[in-house]
Simulated assay, not measured.
Amino acid sequence: MRYDKMIGQLRNKPVLSSPEVLNKLKNKASEIKGVKETYSLIRKLASISGSNVSNVTLDRVMYSTEMLPPLGKEYWWFLFFGRNGERPMQLMLLIFRKYGQNMLFNDKRIVLKRLTENRFRAVTAGWIYDGKEFHDLGDTNAITTVYSKRKMIVSDISGQEIMLTGGFPDYKLKVGNVIDLDIRKGDYLEDKDACGVFIPPFGMAWVDVFSDAEGIVLGEEFKGTAHLQKVVGITTFGPFHWGRILFQNGSSTSFFCLKTGKESKRYFHRSLTFHDYRRKKVIEFKKPRLKISEKEGKMPTWIVEGQDDDKKLRIVLESYVTRKFAMKGGGSQVYIEYAVIPREFSLETPNQVITLSDLGRGVGTFEDAYGSPI
């Protein structure tokens, strides 16, 4: 009786036809090939790690979607700084996807699905500070389409269409009737770069575009700077700090470090750079010893100090806007972004001392992120 039942179950079980089997094998082979190409891209960008990246590579990364293996992540991040006012305008847009079927983003369930080679369902988020008030653009489980040949990204946030078009150095960003910006080449020491870290089987790589931007935001004139970034990685969530500050005279400073834990003061993969626009010189710290501390108040003040054998930098950043993103699924990540203005700055080298009075007013972003791989 038991054998009869087993035979009956086998008879009722659907059997894949040869075309179906071949199709599954082809899809699996295509996935494997795609993952290999993702690793190859991360290795390539990590080997560049600087501004010597071609326009072709920049556009290829910006206008493509990669095949993501487990722990894979891919996102587009657009940040804009205004130049006017005590607390300049800032705005940020994010398109984020990761490996898996779903995730929680700010406690909202997000369906993750690769629909076609260049079309996927993921999350979009964004915010605007108009100089006086904070405007949350919301979190949307949007369908995003990336057109490689047409150099176009189309998505949606809270019912407003997001569209980025163009190629380096000229782009246009439009978000419904909220944002309409022309992005053009600016006068910077470095206006693009490609960077990465590759420690097999993990890796993270990205490209940056630094430009000027002009247009309309929330019905008001905007004139300032643009930072367009595309990131692809195969890694766990984890804690880090990142910041970039632009000054009135065209100089800028940026820093980055990974941390061993949320409250840890042990940093690794550290970087600290100052772009001295007046002297047309990039000052890069070699294996900088970083110290980053938070002074609590109504809004946090961040103090960043770094030095190597012959250079020392200190900057005090006062926060005036903050936005928090919390992600769960395949690990967890809390990402807090602070709009900041520098209240103190000093850079000492064997040949010069630069202070805030030499640079003029500044504006920037400081990021505090922490997470867990489980």
Rank of each mutant, 00 (worst) to 15 (best):
Leu10Ile: 11
Leu10Asp: 02
Leu10Phe: 09
Leu10Pro: 00
Asn12Phe: 01
Lys13Ala: 12
Lys13Ile: 09
Lys13Tyr: 07
Pro14His: 02
Pro14Thr: 04
Pro14Arg: 06
Val15Pro: 00
Val15Gly: 00
Val15Tyr: 00
Ser17Gln: 02
Ser17Leu: 02
Ser17Asp: 01
Ser18Arg: 11
Ser18Asn: 07
Pro19Glu: 08
Pro19Leu: 01
Pro19Gly: 02
Glu20Cys: 01
Val21Lys: 04
Asn23Ala: 15
Lys24Tyr: 02
Leu25Tyr: 06
Leu25Ile: 13
Lys26Tyr: 07
Lys26Val: 10
Asn27Lys: 13
Asn27Met: 11
Lys28Gln: 12
Glu31Cys: 02
Ile32Gln: 10
Lys33Thr: 11
Val35Ser: 00
Val35Met: 02
Lys36Gln: 13
Thr38Asn: 09
Tyr39Cys: 05
Tyr39Arg: 11
Tyr39Ile: 11
Ser40Met: 04
Ser40Glu: 14
Leu45Lys: 06
Ala46Glu: 13
Ala46Cys: 10
Ser47Cys: 07
Ile48Cys: 08
Ser49His: 13
Ser49Pro: 03
Ser51Thr: 10
Asn52Glu: 15
Asn52Val: 08
Val53Arg: 04
Ser54Asn: 05
Val56Leu: 12
Val56Phe: 10
Val56Asp: 14
Thr57Asn: 11
Thr57Gly: 02
Leu58Ser: 11
Asp59Cys: 06
Arg60Asp: 14
Arg60Trp: 02
Arg60Glu: 14
Val61Ala: 00
Val61Lys: 02
Val61Gly: 00
Met62Trp: 04
Met62Cys: 08
Tyr63Trp: 04
Ser64Pro: 06
Ser64Trp: 01
Thr65Gly: 03
Thr65Arg: 11
Pro69Arg: 03
Pro70Leu: 08
Pro70Ala: 04
Pro70Gly: 02
Leu71Asp: 12
Gly72Pro: 08
Lys73Ser: 12
Tyr75Lys: 07
Tyr75Ala: 01
Trp76Leu: 09
Trp77Gln: 06
Phe78Pro: 06
Phe78Asp: 12
Leu79Met: 09
Phe80Thr: 05
Phe80Tyr: 15
Phe80Leu: 09
Phe80Lys: 10
Arg83Tyr: 04
Arg83Thr: 14
Gly85Cys: 10
Gly85Trp: 06
Glu86Tyr: 03
Glu86Thr: 14
Arg87Asp: 11
Pro88Trp: 03
Met89Ser: 12
Gln90Ala: 06
Gln90Lys: 10
Leu91His: 10
Met92Asn: 11
Leu93Val: 07
Leu93Trp: 07
Ile95Phe: 05
Ile95Cys: 01
Arg97Thr: 15
Arg97Phe: 03
Arg97Ala: 06
Arg97Gln: 14
Tyr99His: 14
Tyr99Cys: 04
Gly100Met: 06
Gln101Cys: 01
Asn102Ala: 12
Met103Glu: 07
Met103Gly: 00
